[in-house]
Write a protein that binds this DNA or RNA. Structure first.
Length: 269
DNA sequence: ATGGTGGTCCTACCA
């Protein structure tokens, strides 16, 4: 069977429900993982998703900030909602699928802390939190821990690890999202799998690849100062089942867009 | 080098 899994930092699911609906109608992924939903679970537009054929929902939200959700056409079981750093932030949700003729697949959806502006954990508590989150994640999410299942990890990880994941590597070395310390810590999470980077499986590391463009540009497309902050990783066991991926760059040009665009991975199970 | 825009929810805070 074919399985498609999308991830999108929507920056308010209520404000942009029409954009989400357009994406689901046009691309029709089996599963969509959202970050920065920015609403309580009771305020999540569940009815709209059900109308669009996405009847299975796992929602972990909070008032105003953060918030993650998984909406799906396929049934799943909710398996986890871990409170990393015990701060009460809604930044993770996990579900398990049972594809026909395939072993179970665990899907983790993450919204990693952005980390503020100052890349020094001794003076910036938000950056300290980001690094602590990554340390905790590296110790927790090993694929062999869940050896009975395949695993997919998606989300806004708020880090662009490779040189060609940013518009200017040298200029961004001291900019939060591309500093060596957080890239190293994300690398520890990646190695703990081990994981396969689904996007870079299809785009060589020598080529630019972005999933986010700042709102603070007069013309985002012309400046094209992007970063690859959104990721899809798959366990090595699932690697042979990957069949493609897509970054929906055009959605950055839609009316009142999110600053992130959807990323989709395709599997043949 | 700086400030640029956009979200939540009404006052700053966060991205």
């Amino acid at each position: 069977m074919r399985l498609s899994v999308a991830t999108w930092n929507i920056n308010s699911v209520r404000l942009r429900i029409d954009l989400v609906a357009r994406f689901l109608r046009e691309q029709a992924p089996d599963v969509l993982c959202l970050q920065e939903t920015k609403c309580r679970d009771s305020e999540f537009p569940s009815a709209e998703f059900r109308k669009l054929g996405y009847e299975h929902l796992a929602i972990s939200g909070q008032k105003g900030y953060h918030g993650v959700a998984i909406v799906s056409r396929l049934p799943f079981a909710l398996t986890d909602k871990r409170d990393f750093c015990a701060m009460g932030d809604a930044r993770h949700v996990c579900v398990q699928f049972h594809p026909v003729a395939h072993r179970p697949v665990n899907l983790h959806n993450f919204y990693v802390p952005a980390g503020g502006d100052e890349p020094d954990p001794t003076i910036n508590p938000k950056f300290k939190h980001k690094l602590a989150f990554l340390d905790e994640l590296a110790g927790w999410i090993t694929v062999d821990k869940i050896a009975a299942a395949d695993a997919i990890l998606v989300g806004d990880l708020n880090i662009a690890p490779l040189e060609e994941d940013v518009w200017n590597h040298k200029a961004l070395l001291k900019v939060v999202s591309h500093t060596p310390i957080e890239v190293e810590k994300l690398g520890a999470v990646f190695s703990a799998g081990p994981w396969v980077d689904a996007l870079r499986r299809y785009v060589p590391k020598e080529e630019k690849l972005y999933t986010w463009w700042s709102y603070r540009a007069a013309d985002w497309a012309k400046a094209n100062k992007g970063r690859r902050l959104d990721h899809i990783w798959v366990s090595e066991s699932l690697g042979p089942h990957l069949s493609g991926m897509q970054v929906l760059r055009e959605s950055r040009g839609w009316t009142r867009p999110s600053d992130h665009v959807p990323v989709v991975a395709y599997f043949e199970l």
